[in-house]
Design a protein around this nucleic acid. Sequence first.
DNA 1: CAGGATCCTAGACGATACTG
DNA 2: CAGTATCGTCTAGGATCCTG
Lengths: 140, 140
Amino acid sequence: METIAENQKVRTVKKLEKMFGHIDYRNPPELCPVRDVMSVASDQWSILILLWLGYFSVLRFNKLKKYVYGISNKVLSQRLKILEADGYIERKAYPEVPIRVEYKLTEFGQSYVEKLLELAEWMHDNSPKVIANREQYGLN
Amino acid sequence: METIAENQKVRTVKKLEKMFGHIDYRNPPELCPVRDVMSVASDQWSILILLWLGYFSVLRFNKLKKYVYGISNKVLSQRLKILEADGYIERKAYPEVPIRVEYKLTEFGQSYVEKLLELAEWMHDNSPKVIANREQYGLN
DNA sequence: CAGGATCCTAGACGATACTG
DNA sequence: CAGTATCGTCTAGGATCCTG
């Protein structure tokens, strides 16, 4: 058991080595594309938008707004633009009256959602534990 | 090929169903523990802190501050407290003069970092693509 | 050395009203 | 319907100085 955990840990460190090993930590953040990309893709609202799009395949603006509860007009449209620019989602406007706009994941976005989902599942499974930790910590 | 991708998609939707299917989207955010927990654990700074701790096993305050470049005193200490409260990391203070404080991942934190790392790797591998998308989009 | 306390500001966000 | 425009708030975060 211990050995398996240790092995896992070693593997983790190796992966991190691959990612971080070459980084000169004195470099300013703007030179690290990973941070840049991550800041968009791990934004709270963006995550929810992407997950809901993963769930429903196609959603229109106001539907999306309902599911991503609490998001404002402004933020939703801003996030959608960014996510589109970064290639995660696709926007399709139908020139009807009133206008209809559909959002869906691109292939690329789909592959990201799969990764994201694993993390979200972990959160889902472990949030009770975290909340328990938090409460216990508060008692000290 | 198409079928494999389709199967994957179906599996994704099923997982999302498990997570989101029971949610009444009219509920306010504070009733969704996943969001709550996620907001801490997917915070930009927290992610970097956790990854570096995964890399080095043990780090002291000022070392951490160097690796997580750009982070301020205030934010670092605040995030460390939250991460400790949520059970991701452990703080150990040695009553020397000057004081020495070591931070390391808990088992729980370690398991989270493994998940997180998969995402970070994806970012690492795909950030060029995202940046390319972004630039191309800018040209339109 | 590890942080706490203070002050300050940019910019992120919410609410509302408006338009093609 | 799908946003944009505007405005006001508000707080997260940076910079700095301080201390056990």
